[in-house]
Write a protein that binds this DNA or RNA. Sequence first.
DNA 1: ATTATTTTGTTTCCTTGTCAACAAAAATAT
DNA 2: ATATTTTTGTTGACAAGGAAACAAAATAAT
Lengths: 161, 161
Amino acid sequence: MNQQERILEEFRAVFNKLVWLNRSEMEEALKGHKPSEVHAIEYIGKHSDPNVTRLAEAFYMTRGAISKITKKLLDKGLIESYQSPDNKKEIYFKLTAQGREVFEIHENLHRSFRERDDAVFEKITDEQFESMSRFLDAYTRHLDTEIHKQGIRPEDGPTPE
Amino acid sequence: MNQQERILEEFRAVFNKLVWLNRSEMEEALKGHKPSEVHAIEYIGKHSDPNVTRLAEAFYMTRGAISKITKKLLDKGLIESYQSPDNKKEIYFKLTAQGREVFEIHENLHRSFRERDDAVFEKITDEQFESMSRFLDAYTRHLDTEIHKQGIRPEDGPTPE
DNA sequence: ATTATTTTGTTTCCTTGTCAACAAAAATAT
DNA sequence: ATATTTTTGTTGACAAGGAAACAAAATAAT
């Protein structure tokens, strides 16, 4: 295993550990709501006029899947839908009071996770941070170039926020 | 969004892009085999005496899920099972000739992905590499400590290779 | 040695997401 | 203006994976 594979593998491992560690606490605090539902609530709470298509693009999921999730959230009364007077096709979502509660719990938990790990990030120097950031930027640009080379298929490609 | 969140978010983005870019090519080359099947073939080809439990631990999946995947691979004739004379319970797997073909195609593709991205990794200095590596080690240790604090539940925790 | 506990693999049921087909609305072409 | 194409959201059929229950074998306890 060379340098390249090692660094990517290490990152993957850290990420997995992080996800696994946070999940149990998150699930405990938000019992009764599935991770995908909470995720959608977070997005809806943070963006203006979100609709099924936007959520699907942001989550790299199909519109069908999102449609089912928002249906559940509507049934639970965590979100409500509204439309623009000049567009009868698109359906937007916003949080209800009850949805905002879930949103806040989620935000607070995220804050606590961040604080928990602050120690590690305080120890990295600005140079270290800059170093990683430059690497990531370079890698992203490289991948974008490669994606472009392959002949892009924008309809199923990621369109991150 | 602070430093901490930014760096993690950037890594997630790079990772997603990487997965997405490689997937189409991989699926094209290994048509007829599901990603999870190929993944299992890779593991079986690289480890000695792998069984359902080992695969489940390595992939962070349940034994039930792995059991179904290996069943399919057996039916396809890509792997075969064998047992030790002094253990009638554990069932190990190894690749058949046909399975090795899939294994090789997969390995070659990975090699080509690596070569494709070499340029990016060649540009990072040894200091940069060291810097990232130290950060990752520190983060892993920190998370291990936190996991330990929480009261460990080894039965559903990750047990990476 | 016998009993109790743990490990291993499989199966059934359930949930979640993808895919494909569809209708309604909007955008574009002609 | 009308016709065609694209976008948007929904639904039903299907596949993948998780949870739980289970039997068989191995291990530990007594």
